[in-house]
């Protein structure tokens, strides 16, 4: 292992590290928003939207991110929509993550007794009010473990961005290896960089899961 090689690559890896973090963060937030909307459309059986949500989930879950990215980056321009690699990557990640987040939320909502909805309706609450004050707070708490798993999953999926040449961590490592033929050093930095992101995050999320499980609603 040649430490000077590593040292020389650090500026590039640092940039890639922040880019990976940034794209992951945007992708995860977007996925959470899409997932929340899709899951509520399904939960409250909103006419039209519910079918749309179902089709979206099937497509999103049953195609690889790689193919989704190719479609967005290379396929959409043919339909008149040209997006930069970075924007394509984020859209792809949200397209993939939205369905995973939706299913995580849904599993949480399904833990809520139907009777609560009935008694809420009988009190005159609208679907929107029920969602806001009853369904989402409970569903959110119940879906934290699944959401947390998706967060980790989506960060790892950013490594696939390399196929459309977004200079995130994996792409940077592969680039450097291609240029200088020093795979040990660059792969080492790559592993360390992912570990720096994922290990503390995973510990933090586990802590959050515990807190939510034991800290809410009089448990």
């Amino acid at each position: 292992m040649d430490w000077t090689v590593i040292a020389q690559s650090l500026p590039q890896f640092t940039a890639a590290f922040w880019l990976t973090l940034k794209l992951s963060a945007i992708g995860i937030l977007g996925s959470l928003v899409v997932g929340a909307l899709v899951s509520l459309a399904q939960y409250f059986r909103l006419p039209g939207l519910r079918q749309l949500a179902m089709v979206y989930i099937e497509i999103s879950r049953n195609t690889p991110l790689l193919v989704q990215l190719f479609f967005i980056y290379y396929g959409l321009p043919g339909l008149g929509l040209k997006l930069s690699a970075t924007v394509s990557g984020v859209f792809g990640l949200i397209f993939l993550g939205g369905s995973y987040m939706a299913e995580a939320f849904t599993s949480g909502y399904n833990a809520i007794s139907k009777g609560q909805l009935e008694s809420g309706r009988a009190l005159g609450l609208t679907n929107r009010q029920l969602a806001r004050y009853v369904v989402v707070p409970q569903g959110l708490a119940a879906s934290v473990p699944a959401l947390a798993a998706n967060v980790i999953f989506l960060i790892k999926e950013t490594s696939i961005f390399t196929v459309i040449a977004i200079p995130e961590l994996t792409n940077t490592a592969l680039d450097l290896i291609g240029l200088y033929y020093r795979s040990n050093e660059y792969l080492f930095v790559l592993v360390v960089a992912y570990a720096i992101i994922l290990i503390p995050l995973s510990v933090g999320l586990t802590w959050l899961e515990r807190r939510v499980r034991y800290g809410t609603f009089g448990n």
Binding site: G115, S119, R121, A122, G124, Q138, A141, F217, G218
Partner: peptide
């Protein structure tokens, strides 16, 4: 929605909102 404000209903399963 209007009428439910005027007609209260209680069920066999108590169905309080457990998060509140």
């Amino acid at each position: 929605l209007q009428l439910r404000q005027k007609i209260g209903m209680v069920f066999q399963s108590y169905d309080l909102f457990p998060n509140l």
